[in-house]
């Protein structure tokens, strides 16, 4: 009888000890996870329609590079970030506005005039002037921006 009582009390205290340990772990662990993860879920880029530049700068038949300064808030730092965009037109009526970010692993592609191709130096990804993949590892064509042409200006949708 008394043996049995002692045993159950010991078991009880052991469970209480483990229980308190578990509660404390949760009390630290859950806020820690929120502290680390939640801030990264916030979108940090300014978004909306922004003026890219004058459409008259685009030479038909050659992708033309435009750059756009975007204000970016990262943590406690606000600074300017540059977005690079290629604008291409064949006939001056239909336009393609392409990101210069390679769709493989996000290196920056550049237009090689002699070969008439976009080339990504990281893993030899090759795209044609419309952004279609010609060779290498990129899984899909260069990303396109939504755009709008008003008077002489071209606007793109950022974010």
């Amino acid at each position: 009888m008394s043996e049995e009582f002692k045993l159950s009390r010991r078991k009880f205290l052991e469970k209480v000890t483990v229980g308190i340990g578990g509660v404390l772990t949760a009390l630290f662990g859950i806020p820690a996870a929120i502290f680390v993860v939640k801030p990264v879920l916030k979108k940090d880029e300014s978004s909306g329609w922004m003026r890219l530049g004058s459409i008259s700068k685009v030479t038909p038949g050659t992708p033309t590079l435009f750059s756009l300064k975007v204000e970016r808030e990262t943590g406690w730092i606000t600074d300017q970030d540059e977005i690079m965009v290629y604008v291409y037109t064949e006939d001056g009526r239909d336009y393609a506005v392409m990101s210069n970010i390679c769709t493989h692993l996000a290196c920056r592609v550049r237009w090689i005039e002699e070969r008439q191709e976009f080339f990504c130096p990281c893993h030899n990804g090759v795209y044609d002037k419309q952004g279609t993949v010609l060779a290498g590892p990129p899984p899909r064509p260069l990303d396109r921006y939504e755009f709008n042409i008003e008077n002489d200006d071209i606007y793109i949708k950022v974010g």
């Binding site: 806020p31 820690a32 929120i34 502290f35 939640k38 801030p39 943590g75 406690w76």
Partner: peptide
């Protein structure tokens, strides 16, 4: 930033 912006930053 920790105190005012980060989730539960004030707590930590």
């Amino acid at each position: 930033y920790i105190t005012t912006q980060v989730a539960l930053g004030w707590l930590i």
